[in-house]
């Protein structure tokens, strides 16, 4: 399997990135190289092996439903690139 520019463009859109034509070419070549390398995993028979998403053998970690102070609004919004007194601002979200 090898990676085409169209694949990379699709992924860029999925990941909300915008690549210049030059970046697209470089990225396609570099990603393809890594993908080729990664494909060596195919030679391993992993049937019957449980995927391991966590190394820790832990389960059932909960916190009690007890209120703690939230951030003051100004502290919450302090890092916002664009805001008014109450909210974060973004270009118009249409629909919903």
């Amino acid at each position: 399997m090898s990676l085409s520019k169209a694949d990379v463009e699709k992924v860029a859109s999925l990941a909300r990135l915008k690549l210049t034509d030059e970046e697209l070419s470089t990225m396609t070549r570099q990603l393809d190289q890594v993908i080729q390398y990664v494909q060596q995993l195919e030679e391993l028979d992993t049937s019957g092996v449980q995927p391991m998403a966590h190394t820790a053998d832990l389960a059932n970690v909960f916190a009690d439903d007890l209120l703690r102070a939230s951030l003051p609004r100004d502290a919450a919004l302090a890092n916002a690139p664009k805001r008014d007194d109450e909210c974060y601002l973004v270009p118009p979200v249409l629909g919903d």
Binding site: R68, S70, L71, P72, R73, A76, L77, E86, C87, Y88
Partner: peptide, 19 residues
Amino acid sequence: RCSTSFGAEPNTQTCPVCI
């Protein structure tokens, strides 16, 4: 552990986790 109560002033019930 931010409150879930309805009707509060915007962005007054948030913390690093839910932001």
